[in-house]
């Protein structure tokens, strides 16, 4: 038990600070410790686990309205800036948004939206390769990604998530080809988008 929670602890990347049915925003515990774009994260409670794909991220000032100012004129490197003003680390925060793509309830995985959104302050974990592989067995989530309103271009996010997921698979190419075929069907009416994505995941 102890060991398990410790494992979970290691992958914990942040905490939900804003949530809706389709997505949530989490704040990272460490500045710049943001899970990669397109990677699979999960959050939730005993009731249900939500799976989501990291769809954007930002590092901003903690206090709204106060913008950081440039400080490096007399320093020799970026590290030097943080070293001479350690309080900086406390004034900035990293956040990321994640698009909910599925959930797990009673040990069963669903590739569609959960009945409830995530709760504020619930912990967000990076999924393990085993979880990624399991989730990647169905490509139903692609449809959610393709139809979401996003701040990043859809092609970028879809490609990034597939690239991320492929890393967890034994043979990334086989996974990407299968995903590509699914996309070819989903995007049968949108050849340009298909080409754009395939170009970004080609092996």
């Amino acid at each position: 038990m102890v060991k398990e929670s410790k494992m979970a602890e290691m992958q914990r990347v942040g905490e939900v600070i804003e949530a809706s049915t389709t997505d949530f925003v989490a704040q990272c515990y460490e500045l710049y410790q943001i899970p990669p774009l397109g990677s699979l994260v999960k959050t939730g409670d005993l009731n249900a686990e939500l799976y989501a794909v990291v769809c954007n991220a930002a590092t901003t000032s903690l206090e709204p309205g106060r913008r950081p100012i440039a400080r490096g004129k007399d320093e020799t490197s970026e590290e030097e800036i943080y070293r001479s003003s350690p309080q900086l680390m406390k004034l900035l925060k990293s956040e990321f948004g994640a698009l909910v793509v599925g959930h797990k309830k009673d040990a069963k995985l669903y590739h569609h939206l959960p009945p409830q959104p995530a709760r504020i302050h619930s912990f967000v974990y990076q999924c393990t390769p085993a979880e990624v592989t399991e989730f990647g067995q169905s490509f139903d989530f692609l449809n959610i990604l393709l139809n979401a309103r996003l701040t990043v271009p859809t092609e970028e996010l879809v490609a990034a998530s597939l690239r991320q997921m492929s890393q967890a698979h034994q043979d990334p190419r086989v996974f990407l080809v299968a995903a590509g075929k699914e996309l070819a069907i989903l995007l049968s009416g949108n050849l340009n988008q298909l080409k754009a994505i395939l170009g970004r995941i080609r092996q």
Binding site: V177, K181, L183, A184, S188, L191, L198, R202, Q203
Partner: peptide
């Protein structure tokens, strides 16, 4: 009209049987 880059085996493989 605008055939995909089939010189790329990955793309050719993806499109075969789908598009």
């Amino acid at each position: 009209v605008t055939p995909p880059d089939t010189a790329d085996p990955f793309i050719a493989e993806v499109l075969a049987g789908t598009s």
